[in-house]
């Protein structure tokens, strides 16, 4: 499974939570992040491999079953990693790279992004994560919201998710993160699969 987005969106923590849930459920896990230097703004991707025995921490091209994209361009960037029939869940948000702001490059349109993902993905689901989180008043919980969406397709018990999320989130925002996770589960069930 690939989790993609930009620095500051909580990708690394999302990968950690997913990995720990899978370990707790009795699976072998390897998890690795690819991020450039500095704190924010760059592309970030977390590879999480789950199985009975996992060797390589890096996922090979064409081997991704589930792509969790926190930002549209960053989801499209990894489209070629999807296995035929894979599921792509993409937060319907565009964060413009500097080159686009400066007018040197063009941000791809929605149809282009869908097209890239549809080359392999069996299902592409756009989800208004940012809007739902604004309703919940917790803009920083995108990572657990997206994990909530993914959890519907994964064989792990909900209490495990709640447990591991609680372990990672400080007490004052714990409950609101659980709410965001549950909202993600609800939201993904609501949207129609394209």
């Amino acid at each position: 499974m690939l989790i993609t987005g930009t620095g500051g969106q909580g990708i690394v923590l999302a990968g950690d939570i997913l990995g720990e849930v899978a370990i707790a459920a009795g699976y072998d896990v390897k998890k690795t992040d690819t991020l450039g230097m500095a704190q924010r703004g760059g592309s970030v991707v977390s590879h999480v491999r789950i199985g009975s025995r996992v060797w390589s921490p890096l996922i090979g091209g064409g081997d991704v079953d589930l792509l969790l994209g926190f930002e549209k361009l960053e989801a499209a960037r990894w489209g070629h990693y999807l296995r035929a029939g894979a599921i792509a869940i993409v937060n319907n948000q565009a964060l413009l790279p500097l080159s686009v702001n400066l007018g040197n490059e063009k941000y791809p349109g929605d149809s282009e992004i869908t097209g890239i993902l549809r080359q392999h993905a069996g299902r592409v689901v756009f989800i208004d994560g940012t809007a739902r989180l604004r309703e919940l008043g917790n803009m920083r919980a995108l990572n657990v919201f997206m994990l909530g969406c993914a959890s519907v397709f994964l064989p792990f018990k909900v209490y495990l998710w709640h447990d591991i999320i609680s372990r990672h989130i400080s007490a004052d925002t714990r409950q609101s993160n659980i709410v965001a996770f549950n909202r993600g589960r609800k939201e993904i069930r609501r949207v129609n699969f394209e």
Binding site: G7, S43, G62, L73, R77, W78, S99, Y107
Partner: peptide, 16 residues
Amino acid sequence: PEKVSVASELPKRPPL
């Protein structure tokens, strides 16, 4: 893998 290389055409996002 049946690679569909699109990544190079998309705008890059270097750290800032």
